[in-house]
Amino acid sequence: MNIKTQALSGGFQEPVFHSQGVFRMLMDGMARPGTVHTIAMDIGQPEPLGQAAGAIALTLCDHDTPTWLSAGLLKSPAAEWIGFHTGAPITREKAESRFAFVEAGVAPSSFGLFAAGTQEYPDRSTTLVIEIGALGQGQALTLKGPGIQQTTTVKLKGLPEVFPRLWADNRALFPRGVDVILTAGKSLLCLPRTTQIAVQ
């Protein structure tokens, strides 16, 4: 498939019901940080965009959500795929992005340049969708905070080493801050800004 047709193919087969289904996973995921959800439907997203990450874009992005892409995604057909299927303007300014997608193996140096919202409007912040190696295996982390009864343990493979430190910085900004969705292929897991992370 050439780049053009790759960008134009795929998407949700039943946009109304599939986006509702994916949204409910995200809503449950944000309400219960650390729970792993799996996107079953094939959406034909181009590499290196993962299936879950692509489904999140289809569900939440549109004309009103400037979207930032990491370098690898930006120069891949994924950029055009997101643009075509969602209508989201691709921005190079992290600070004006409502969503940011990061491909696997790239460690963000900081969350600082993304929108953290303001003290009056902390909701005006970026949601980062970060692809990692796998959910359910790898390094064990303990999560704590709203949505979690006492504590929960998650296992993450390929999480950038710097992540726990960046997350602690992000926590310190509360109520401002970014929210993160970790994806690995078909799976996703949410980390709202309220979640505290401890490395086991």
């Binding site: 986006s19 509702q20 949204f23 995200l26 809503m27 944000m30 309400a31 569900t59 939440l60 992005c61 549109d62 009103d64 959500t65 409502r98 902390p122 909701d123 912040s125 949601t127 949505g147 109520p175 929210d179 709202p192 800004r193 309220t194």
Partner: peptide, 14 residues
């Protein structure tokens, strides 16, 4: 719906 869904996710996060 997308606009409201985005608002709901931020509401849960804060």
């Amino acid at each position: 719906k997308r606009m409201i869904r985005r608002a709901i996710l931020k509401a849960i996060a804060i």
